[in-house]
Each structure stands twice: as structure tokens, then as C-alpha cells.
């Protein structure tokens, strides 16, 4: 605890060295544990998924649900975590909040991409089309474009404080899309089906049979643990990048004084 208090006091001067040392120690310990849990969950999820019977209506394509639905859940969860971090970055100017946003962007983009591609591969045999411009699909495409824009922005501004503020503001503005994605199937007539598991009540009495529900939930857990593993790895890399940048600036200043 004392580490945190001390670090917070130094935030103004050494923003890039506030809590990161402690965070790195924590990440180094946690990443291998999370990676093992992720691998076990994937093994269990794939086993349960491939053991599940074919759906009476969808046949074997129900298999795509086990990778499509968790990808979209995690894509939206990632953006929600980024938005919470954006508040942390804007209100408390916590450097780790900005690190968390930057590290989450490529992961969220990858999961959204997977949601779009697997959805398309599921849509063709079930709906007879790869793509329709309906509310659900279009809002998910917008989410992917937002991720791409944030990624470009995060690489475009060199000065970390300005970049952090811009990223946080745009991340928060983009959050408006998350409830639109979630409720698009209720608000508009879409080709996409409504949520099968949308609340605790629905988990207790789901629209899905348990032979599909268990593999789906196991894969959702596997995807979530994969996200947390990759996010910690990405944050660790971002902290290293910032340290390297600080050291290079220190070196340039020293060279300047020496000249």
C-alpha cells in the first residue's frame, strides 16, 4: 500500500514511473498463472463444444456459436474496460489508465474482427448471405472502425500526455456504440437473433439447451482469461516502451548538455 501512496505523490513529476514497478512485479507473477488457466479453459471449452450434438435447426454450424459469441462479448467487454480506464486517465490522470487503454486497443480490434468474420461465416449457411447492413452488424462494424481509429491515433501522437487525453476523450465518445450494439436487436428489426443469455435470469433459464450453454460459457471464460492475459502482457510492453522513451530522452538531454 505504501508503494501506491508514494507513487501517487510523484505522479506529476515522474508520470511514467508512478506505479509501474509494482505493477510489473504483479504482472510477471500473474501472467503465467492466467496463461495456464486460459489453456485449460480452452481445452475444456473445445472438448465440450466438439462433443455437443448438432442443433436440430442449424446442424453443425452451431459450432461457430462457441467462437463467435465469446469473441463479441469480449470485444464489448474490452471497450467497456477501456472506457473505465479513460475516466481514470481523465479524472485522476493515472498513467496506468492510459497504459491500459493503449494495450487493450489491438486486442479489442482483433476480437471484433473475429466476431465479424465468424459471424459472416455463420451467416452465409444460416441466412444465405455473408453480410447485411442491419443494425447489429453495422454497429459492430462501427466498433471495429472505432478500434482502428483509436489504434491510428495512439500511434500518431508522440507526446504521451496529449496522446493520453485525446485517446481517453475519443474512447469515451465511442462508448455510445456499446449500448447500441447490445440493444440493436431489440430496438430495430434485424436479421440477427436477440440475445439468448442477456441476464442472470436468462442464465438460470436460458433460451439455449445446456448441451450448448456449457461449452458456450466455458469458451466465454476462456476468451475472457485470454483477454486478461494478453492485456497484462500488452500493459507490460507499454510500460517498457515508456521507460525506453524516457531513457532515450534523458540520453538526448545529456548529450545536449555535453555538446
Amino acid at each position: 500500500m505504501s508503494d501506491v501512496t508514494t507513487s501517487t505523490g510523484f505522479l506529476g513529476k515522474v508520470w511514467d514511473l508512478a506505479n509501474p514497478t509494482r505493477f510489473l512485479r504483479f504482472a510477471n507473477r500473474l501472467i503465467p498463472v492466467l496463461a495456464i488457466i486460459t489453456a485449460l479453459l480452452f481445452a475444456a471449452g473445445l472438448y465440450l463444444g466438439f462433443s455437443a450434438p448438432q442443433d436440430y435447426l442449424q446442424g453443425a454450424t452451431v459450432q461457430i456459436m462457441f467462437i463467435h459469441v465469446p469473441a463479441m462479448w469480449v470485444a464489448m467487454m474490452t471497450y467497456s474496460i477501456m472506457s473505465i480506464s479513460a475516466i481514470g486517465s481523465l479524472v485522476w490522470r493515472h498513467p496506468l489508465a492510459d497504459v491500459a487503454i493503449r494495450a487493450a486497443i489491438p486486442i479489442g480490434a482483433a476480437f471484433t474482427f473475429l466476431g465479424l468474420v465468424t459471424g459472416s461465416l455463420w451467416g452465409k449457411p444460416m441466412w444465405g448471405t455473408w453480410w447485411v447492413w442491419d443494425a447489429r452488424l453495422t454497429s459492430v462494424l462501427i466498433l471495429f472502425i472505432i478500434y482502428a481509429g483509436l489504434y491510428a491515433l495512439s500511434r500518431a501522437i508522440d507526446e504521451p500526455t496529449t496522446a493520453a487525453r485525446s485517446l481517453a476523450v475519443i474512447t469515451l465518445v465511442g462508448f455510445i456504440n456499446i449500448p447500441i450494439i447490445k440493444f440493436s436487436v431489440d430496438w430495430w428489426n434485424t436479421l440477427h437473433q436477440p440475445a439468448s443469455i442477456s441476464s442472470l435470469e436468462r442464465i438460470a433459464k436460458p433460451a439455449l439447451d445446456v448441451v450448448f450453454l456449457y461449452p458456450l460459457l466455458t469458451m466465454a471464460l476462456a476468451y475472457s482469461f485470454l483477454f486478461f492475459t494478453l492485456h497484462l502482457m500488452g500493459m507490460r510492453n507499454e510500460i517498457f516502451r515508456r521507460r525506453i522513451r524516457s531513457m532515450r530522452m534523458l540520453s538526448a538531454r545529456a548529450a545536449d548538455k555535453g555538446a
Partner: peptide, 30 residues
């Protein structure tokens, strides 16, 4: 997977490639 193998196999293959690539490139960067 019957007639739908042409959709299911690519879906799993692309997912595996992207997720493995995400993990490996993060480790390489580290």
C-alpha cells in the same frame, strides 16, 4: 461437420491464427 465444414473449419482456423498471432507477437515484442 457435414455440408457445413466449409464454414466451420475456416471460422476455427481464422480464430486460431488471430489468437495465436496476438499471443506470439506480444511475447516477441516483450
Amino acid at each position: 461437420f457435414g455440408d457445413h465444414a466449409a464454414f466451420i473449419i475456416p471460422a476455427y482456423a481464422i480464430t486460431a491464427i488471430v489468437l495465436i498471432w496476438l499471443s506470439v507477437q506480444s511475447r516477441i515484442q516483450y
